[in-house]
Simulated scan of single mutants.
Amino acid sequence: MNRLALPAVLAAIALVLTGCAGGTPADDGAPVDLSQVTLRVGDQAGIQSAVVEASGALDGAPYTVEWAQFPAAAPLLEALRSEAIDIGIAGDAPTLTALSSTDSIKIVEATRSPAHGGLALLVPGDSPVQTVADLRGKKVSPTTQGSIGHYLLLRALEEAGVPAEEVEISFLQPVDAAAALNSGAIDAWSTWDPYTAVAQQESGARILRDSEGLGTGLTFLDANTAALEDPGTRAAMADFTERYATALQWARENPAENAAIYSELTGRPAEVAQLMADRAQRETEPLDDALVTELQEVADRYADYGVLRSSVDVGSAVEDLAAPAGR
């Protein structure tokens, strides 16, 4: 499985898949030569790219895929906004954070994880903190600003009746946050897998509050508008989203092989990899009115927390790849 030996963070890999040149009609009816298209896909920690590769979902794709790796959603979305990548995966909260400051990003596919991808508020195993209310006066990292970890922390504090200003919030990148939790520099950490699983299994971290009832478990494939307006790139993205759904199905149907991916990808013990793989299972969901309404509620709450720069109209941020550009 050497082909799955991808770095856990900040790696840059290129997966070149060529097939028949096949033509797809452009908006003006002229065929698009997908063999000339390179689709730049943003991933976090190499996980999705490894699953896609192992599943064989991209076999025969008539375009080239280049993967770019990021440690979290915030830098991925910034790369998307700056058009360094065409499409990338990000959770609901960071997607909304990005949408509040730009109209150059659209949601093109939705997936949901019943286990919310391991999103949880963690404390050291021997911490005297037993409830979220005990975090008053404590130092907590919600990982990056505007992340799903940030949203979970604010929701958990609200649930516990603790004003956010009564907690010292320190935004740290995952590696720094893990070190800070282990050293006692922070009292709690709100994060997601693979970081949650590693902290649980290797550092004995304890889940203070999971995201059940507080989060949606939604993750999106987001695209920039420049890529969507290009007929060739748009056609490649439409095909890629279908293949990505196939990869997710493969992961659900092959749990042992999926867990092996996590083990080799992260270099972690089998029990850590299995936990991550189990909690990573997700399925695609239609971008319908019900989902838009659900996400709008998250956006409105996040705006009320003062995290979003401006309000977000979720409906206008959803793009149907099956429709012609601009419609």
Rank of each mutant, 00 (worst) to 15 (best):
L4I: 14
L17I: 08
A21K: 12
A21D: 09
G23L: 12
D28N: 10
S35T: 05
Q36S: 12
L39F: 06
R40Y: 04
V41K: 01
Q44A: 10
I47E: 01
Q48N: 07
S49A: 15
S49M: 14
E53Y: 08
A54M: 10
G60Y: 03
Y63E: 05
Y63T: 08
Y63C: 11
E66V: 15
E66D: 09
W67A: 03
W67T: 08
F70R: 04
F70D: 00
A72Q: 08
P75Y: 03
L76R: 03
E78W: 02
A84V: 12
P94D: 04
T95D: 02
L96E: 00
L99K: 02
S100P: 10
S104I: 09
K106L: 09
K106Q: 11
I107W: 04
I107G: 04
I107E: 05
I107Q: 07
A110I: 13
A110H: 03
R112M: 13
R112D: 00
S113A: 15
S113D: 03
P114V: 10
A115S: 10
A115G: 01
L119F: 10
A120P: 03
S127F: 04
P128N: 02
V132Q: 01
A133D: 01
G137H: 07
K138I: 13
K139L: 07
S141P: 06
L152E: 01
L154Y: 06
L157Q: 02
G161W: 05
V162M: 12
P163D: 06
V167E: 01
Q173V: 15
A179P: 00
L181K: 07
S183A: 14
W192L: 15
Y195N: 14
Y195H: 14
T196E: 01
A197K: 05
Q201C: 13
E202K: 15
I207L: 12
S211A: 14
T216F: 03
T219I: 15
A223V: 13
N224S: 02
A226T: 13
L228E: 00
G232R: 06
G232M: 10
T233G: 06
R234M: 02
A236Q: 12
M237G: 06
T241A: 05
Y244Q: 04
L248I: 11
W250T: 02
N254W: 04
P255L: 07
A256N: 03
E257R: 11
A259R: 03
A259Q: 02
A259D: 00
A260D: 13
E264V: 15
L265F: 11
T266V: 12
R268H: 13
L275W: 02
A280W: 13
A280Q: 12
E285C: 11
P286I: 08
V292Q: 09
E294T: 14
V298H: 00
V298C: 01
A303H: 08
Y305T: 06
Y305A: 08
Y305C: 07
V307G: 00
V307S: 01
R309I: 05
V312M: 00
V318W: 04
D320A: 11
L321S: 07
A325T: 07
